[in-house]
Design a protein around this nucleic acid. Structure first.
Lengths: 152, 152
DNA sequence: TGTTTTTAAATGTATATACATTAAATTCAC
DNA sequence: GTGAATTTAATGTATATACATTTAAAAACA
């Protein structure tokens, strides 16, 4: 994990302009992050997005969410919430109940086992995030502001 | 593409700390970018990473690169350069020649057709990058600095 | 020289992503 | 109320990702 400017990391001499560099920089930084995260989650047989869905469900404090509400809250809007929930159910980390008010919908909630796995992981994930992000808190805050603005 | 802070976009009230928010913010922003890029590249039957590999090869000014050198320069270090090159070859955008000095290696270079597709796309991609990044040039530069530092 | 180790690329496999399509239930229009 | 339109999940399919394994060639070394 040695320090490298993007240009050295991907051996590209220069970019057309800073906007084009930024797109590449975001793609590259994402890969850096996800590769690291995968190795953290692997022993628990979870993907980063599966972990995220567990966090979403726990944030409901017991209230279930439908599959489409989960989709809305997921980080990757194109991923398939239905199949992801199926995977989590197989691991007994969530439960699925047909919604009585609208039988098209399915109420999904986290199980006790899901909560256990989550709390076991949480501290590790947090420490890990601090570890892989080589920035001061002020820089992190500024990065958050800029990313929110970027998508505006 | 309306402006939304991360918290509203994924309907999460708060984060444990700014580092944890940043990880989520990077994942979410990446998805925003890639979803947009996919729609741009789709009519050309290219994925963003395939486009990137074409750019890498063109940057060589005719000199070929081996598959593993391409892998090194790719944005996602875990993707499979061998199969990606195979896809590009099928589309006749690159050519593969067994390296005479070392028969394990394969020299890959961009074809005339590949160069044509690339120059056709280039202006569009650049305009598109400016369009989806809602930041001033000063902000973009700062974001680039922070991302490079993040991975340090 | 012959054997072992290392390297480069290809291949295998499970899962994830990016859609399009389908099936069932509900809502809307009339 | 009936039929059309819409919504929700699930399913189908092609490709991409994240590895592990294999195959072949080259390098290292005894």
């Amino acid at each position: 994990m040695m320090m490298m400017r993007l240009e050295e990391a991907i051996k590209q001499k220069e970019f057309k302009d800073p906007y084009n560099k930024l797109v590449v920089n975001l793609l590259y930084t994402h890969s850096y992050l996800v590769t690291a995260q995968n190795s953290l989650f692997k022993p628990y047989d979870l993907s980063p997005e599966q972990y995220n869905v567990l966090r979403i469900l726990r944030g409901q404090n017991g209230k279930p969410l439908t599959v489409s509400s989960i989709q809305d809250r997921m980080l990757n809007k194109m991923s398939n919430a239905s199949r992801l929930v199926e995977k989590l159910k197989t691991k007994e980390l969530v439960q699925r109940v047909e919604c009585p008010k609208d039988r098209r919908q399915v109420d999904v909630s986290i199980t006790e086992k899901g909560n256990q796995v989550l709390s076991e992981l949480e501290k590790q994930v947090s420490d890990f995030n601090h570890l892989i992000i080589n920035l001061s808190e002020a820089d992190v805050n500024q990065l958050n502001v800029l990313l929110d603005k970027l998508r505006g």
